[in-house]
């Protein structure tokens, strides 16, 4: 899905936990996530800290979208 949308001309950032899959599939901008069932959250954290965690991941995703890349790039949080 990442590739088809990017093929249509829209930059995509892929937020996912198993980044090797994302690399194999061919995503160009990748942000590693927290866990498979909750990529942008952590149920063990209190709500405000969890929100803060999600905010950081989204910040990184927006940074990835604002960064020119020539090749597949993983943006570590």
């Amino acid at each position: 899905m990442v590739k088809e949308i990017e093929r249509a001309g829209i930059p995509v950032v892929h937020i996912c936990t198993v980044t090797p899959i994302s690399m194999t599939v061919g995503a160009n901008r990748i942000v590693p996530a927290i866990a498979i069932p909750h990529p942008l959250g952590n149920p063990e954290l209190p709500a405000d800290e969890e929100y803060e965690l999600r905010r950081k991941l989204v910040d990184k995703a927006l940074e990835a979208l604002s960064t020119e890349v020539d090749d597949q790039t993983i943006f570590e949080v």
Binding site: I5, T17, A33, P37
Partner: peptide
């Protein structure tokens, strides 16, 4: 594209 979206955040579990 028809909605002029500039970028996509795609999440996977």
């Amino acid at each position: 594209i028809s909605y002029d979206v500039d970028a996509v955040v795609l999440t996977s579990t």
